[in-house]
Design a binder for these strands. Structure first.
Length: 788
DNA sequence: TGGCAAAGGCTTTTT
DNA sequence: GCCTTTGCCA
């Protein structure tokens, strides 16, 4: 506070900042809370603050900047270096920071310095094996549910021996039995999962006071980005490092907290001011990113949330085009429409592909969009799912490396002992595993003794011995440059030959990927020429890279990604698709009001990524698990300010479909087209006061059907159209039980029951915000339908 | 033991 | 609809 005035800025470093930004950037000692709205120049403030600390004589090694993604860390690093020409500030994700710390203090938590990091897939395998070996009945639940329960426990700092299941929770009971053994196996394999990285470090800091004090003194200035997304473990870590030197600066926005499902605790940011004494609070509310139209939409939407710190978002940017809300007949029409629009904009020279981004709630929604973009010949990139390090062939090669680095890594051994095929099958492995368990040794040691195992035939034992010998030859190359190690692995394992000799196109592609990994190794060697444990570092990096890190901003491509992945990014043009009930909000969130708020924040994040243009859309029918189903518009669409929106149904799609009339059933009941016909007497939408929706948009039993499939594919149109109820008696019954509604005073609610008919028709409704059941005369109520 | 075909299950979001 | 797991046969 005292010396955080502009006059302590001799280099004029902070001159370009606004006064609020400058206040935050100039702050030096003591806790600092920066409440930063979207597009408020937060990164700018943080990087300037780091630069300012350096300028005031703080040593780079005393500063620790923690982010959630490597990408955010890289960007921060680059910007700080540009500002100060100074290196040596530790910037990285929580996970990589903890991984590095654990290398040093591994023995204190029962690991060795060469421990392996299991990714989600690896830990899932271990868990499944534990479940299997204990013959746990997992009907009515799934390994995923159990895994996430364990993950939740770890993120809440509950260790295996502390875990107490909630009364009569089936999953909890299983977790209580399985968690300890799962943990034992990790330790026995000298491995830890993602959550352990945090949990081990938190434990370390709690139990080793001397070490804690030492690290507290070393990392004197700590910055945490996206503080609203920290979980209890992360909180404990930064808290423990900020006791003697409470120079903790956190930035975040409660409205952008979207990781509650993985244990993020909104209270961390909401109660920061209570956690520390004499907290300086700076609010960054001016938005430099978006048009006022976009900002208005975002602001209006998020105001429906209850659990938040109210703030006012404003911008000096000039007004621009309204936010578009588009209803497409089907999901593929949506994809086509968006691809077409982008194509037009690009062709007209108004936009480049790289200006545009498409966001969706679940990864599965990317397919139709990819397809449509490909048809239009628009280059795109997907930030998602199966990225490089998750591919089978890459994981195989990495498993060899893992085993070389950490011989106790049983999971890695199981993965590659028979890849390529060496005649070591399932039964042999079972025998080997039970032998290892009996002798309490790792699988590799068991393999070394396979000749002694009675149950394993001589012939097979010889095969195993050959494998072990090959592995030992690889290990001879372990100390040197990474590339050399990897070449040895590919040679001695026979993996490369195996792929090279295959005729299948798939294997050739795999070979290419393996070559790419080799290139990555080469690059790694170049960047870390002096590294003694290159192998260890490389494996660590491979385990901790995230999907979003692969994002290439250089390339001029449309970017496709989930709403979660979009956080922290911005694009001139943004499309958010599938704003439909069950998808956004996701069905697994739709009962719990708190989760609904998180879904709303997710949409808020998506909206505020847009700089100039924003389109929200939904479809009236969407293919889901191979089945086409009518959809319900998202309740969030009702929460947008009408005056900022332009509403449209694109013309053309329905008529195109109508032209293709070799399917007579399409025209059944065709006189009630529910707002989808191509006549032009309805372009006056929105017509209904107080809502962008007209009654026709809520037709429950639309008599019209549109195929999701490409029109040339006649096959897909036969058979009965399931997921589609029979047409009802003409006019739609707007309120039916289970349907979502909106009331100007009470917000969103659900219809519990209806009674009466005509003007006397009543609906009993329970509102999300609570307050019990309320009853309304449908005809006279201001209820807006969000049907279900 | 290994390869192939059929059946089953699955879908949030990520370090 | 797609991917993974299971089961059967050579």
């Amino acid at each position: 506070m005292e010396d955080s005035l502009p006059n302590s800025d001799p280099a004029g470093l902070l001159a370009s900042l606004t006064s609020a930004q400058r206040e935050a950037a100039a702050h030096i000692d003591g806790p600092l809370l920066i409440l930063a709205g979207p597009g408020s120049g937060k990164t700018r403030v943080v990087t300037h603050r780091v630069a300012n600390l350096l300028l005031h004589g703080v040593a780079p090694g005393q500063i620790l900047a923690l982010t959630f993604t490597n990408k955010a860390a890289d960007e921060m690093r680059q910007r700080v270096e540009r500002l100060t020409q100074c290196r040596g500030v530790w910037m990285g994700t929580f996970h990589s920071f903890c991984a590095r710390l654990l290398r040093q203090y591994a023995t204190l938590v029962g690991l060795h310095e060469n421990y392996s990091i299991y990714d989600a897939d690896d830990s899932r395998r271990v868990l499944k094996e534990v479940l299997h070996s204990r013959a746990e009945p997992i009907t009515h639940t799934s390994p995923e549910a159990i895994a996430s329960a364990i993950s939740w426990a770890k993120n809440s700092l509950v260790t295996a021996d502390q875990y107490v299941p909630r009364a009569n929770s089936t999953v909890g009971a299983i977790v209580a039995r399985v968690y300890p053994e799962y943990q034992q196996r990790l330790i026995a394999s000298n491995a830890c999962d993602f959550d352990d990285l945090l949990l081990h470090v938190a434990t370390l800091l709690r139990e080793q006071e001397e070490l804690r004090a030492q690290l507290d003194a070393r990392y004197r200035y700590i910055l945490v980005d996206e503080y609203q997304d920290t979980n209890l473990a992360q909180y404990a870590i930064v808290r423990a490092l900020s006791i003697d030197h409470p120079n903790l600066a956190v930035t975040g926005d409660p409205d952008q907290s979207i990781y509650g499902w993985r244990g993020a605790n909104l209270s961390n940011i909401l109660e920061f001011e209570k956690d520390f004494t004499r907290v300086a609070v700076v609010r960054l509310e001016q938005n430099f990113r978006s048009t006022p139209n976009i900002l208005q939409v975002a602001d209006h939407l998020i105001s429906f949330n209850v659990r938040r710190k109210p703030k006012r978002l404003f911008t000096d940017n000039p007004p621009a085009s309204p936010v578009r809300l588009v209803v497409y007949p089907t999901g593929s029409d949506e994809a086509d429409g968006i691809a077409q629009r982008i194509a037009e904009e690009v062709l007209a020279g108004r936009r480049r592909p790289g200006d545009c981004a498409v966001f969706y709630r679940v990864n599965a929604l990317s397919r139709p969009i990819e397809h449509a973009l490909r048809l239009q010949g628009i280059p795109y990139q997907i930030v998602n799912g199966l990225e490089f390090y998750q591919r089978k062939e890459i994981k195989d090669v990495l498993a060899y490396l893992h085993l070389v680095n950490n011989p106790q890594n049983d999971l890695a051994l199981l993965r590659i002992i028979n890849t390529p095929a060496r005649g070591i099958g399932k039964t042999t492995l079972e025998r080997l595993t039970s032998y290892a368990r009996r002798k309490r040794i790792c699988l590799l040691d068991a393999a070394r003794q396979s000749g002694l195992v009675q149950a394993i035939p001589k012939r097979t034992a010889t095969q195993i011995a050959k494998f072990v010998a090959a592995l030992d030859r690889m290990s001879l190359h372990a100390g040197g440059p990474l590339q050399e190690t990897m070449v040895a692995v590919l040679r001695e394992s026979g993996y490369r030959d195996w792929l090279a000799e295959s005729d299948s196109e798939e294997d050739q592609e795999r070979l290419a990927n393996v070559e790419e990994l080799l290139t990555a190794a080469e690059e790694f060697d170049r960047q870390h020429p002096e590294a003694e444990q290159a192998l260890e570092l490389f494996l660590e990096q491979a385990a901790l890279v995230a999907d979003t890190d692969a994002l290439e901003t250089e390339q001029d491509r449309v970017t496709l990604m989930t709403l979660h992945a979009a956080k922290g990014l911005e694009f001139p043009v943004v499309f958010i698709v599938a704003a439909e009930h069950g998808l956004l909000p996701h069905e697994r969130s739709s009962e719990d009001p708190e989760k609904i708020e998180e879904e709303r924040r997710l949409l808020f994040v998506g909206i505020t990524r847009a700089k100039q243009e924003l389109q929200l859309s939904c479809a009236q029918y969407r293919a889901f698990r191979g089945e086409r189903r009518p959809t319900i518009p998202s309740q969030f669409l009702m929460e947008l300010p009408r005056e900022e929106l332009s509403y449209s149904e694109p013309v053309g799609y329905p008529s195109e479909l109508d032209a293709d009339d070799d399917f007579d059933d399409r025209r059944d009941d065709g006189d009630d087209l529910g707002g989808l016909d191509d006549s032009d007497d309805r372009d006056e939408r929105p017509r209904r006061r107080g809502s962008v929706w007209s009654d026709e948009d809520f037709v429950q039993d639309s008599p019209v059907e549109y195929d999701e499939d490409d029109s040339q594919d006649g096959e897909s149109r036969r058979g009965n159209r399931s997921g589609h109820a029979a047409p009802s008696s003409g006019r739609v019954q707007l309120f039916v039980p289970g349907m979502m509604v909106w009331h100007p005073d009470y917000g969103t609610g659900m219809v519990l029951s209806v009674s009466g008919s005509g003007l006397k028709r009543k609906a009993q409704i329970e509102f999300v915000q609570g307050g019990g059941t309320k009853s309304f005369l449908v005809a006279h109520s201001p209820l807006e339908p969000v049907p279900e």
